[in-house]
Amino acid sequence: MSRWRWFHLLASPPYVYRLAERLAPWIGAASVLALAAGTYGGLVLAPPDYLQGEGFRIIYVHVPSAYIGLMAYVVMASAAACGFIWRIKLAHAVAACTAPVGASFTFLALFTGAVWGKPMWGTYWQWGDARLVSELVLLFLYLGFMLLRSSFDERDKGDRVAAILAAVGVVNVPIIHYSVEWWSTLHQGATMMRLDGPSITLEMLIPLLIMIGAFTLCFAWLILRRLQAEILDRERRTRWVEQLVTGGAS
């Protein structure tokens, strides 16, 4: 047996479909539990901030959604690049599934940031802030990817052209991350990803880590479910899909 067997299995649509079918319920249940625990910790257990009072609790939905928005883009662009280079259809399917999910969480990061900015900075939005604008560019990259992909009649062509856009757009990821250091105006600097360790007390940090884990599980569940539909759609003419839907042995 080759040591690359796992790699071939992960490029095999029927294998991945069944894997997703088996994993999704567990990941979904874990996500619901973690979301409940993180929300309780963030809204009730964490002490109020000495500067922002109870208003800081928005952090528990803002940071995880911003994290998912960025992480999903890296997943999408990597998958699209793998699909482009090695012509793996399943990789293109992953990229296609990730785009709408990533876009929705990026929107959520912008929304929660705006309603947090209003009481703390006195404004919902400022065009001069690099973090805010680069995050908006991220949303447009997702939307551009989706539009471009769907504008081709042939799915293969759409996959390949959109993959180029996704790969080029990766330059925005480090820009978002470092924007608070390079052109800081309104948005504060990093709280957790610092060389000298997180600048936040444990009582506040633990619910935040739980929420980030919960959002990641939620993201994984969404991608698995979407991927199942995407695989069925792309493999509709194959024998295994026919057997799956008619209930025949596979």
Partner: peptide
């Protein structure tokens, strides 16, 4: 602000 953020989430 807090409930708007959590509601949208």
């Amino acid at each position: 602000y807090v409930w708007a953020a959590y509601g949208m989430t």
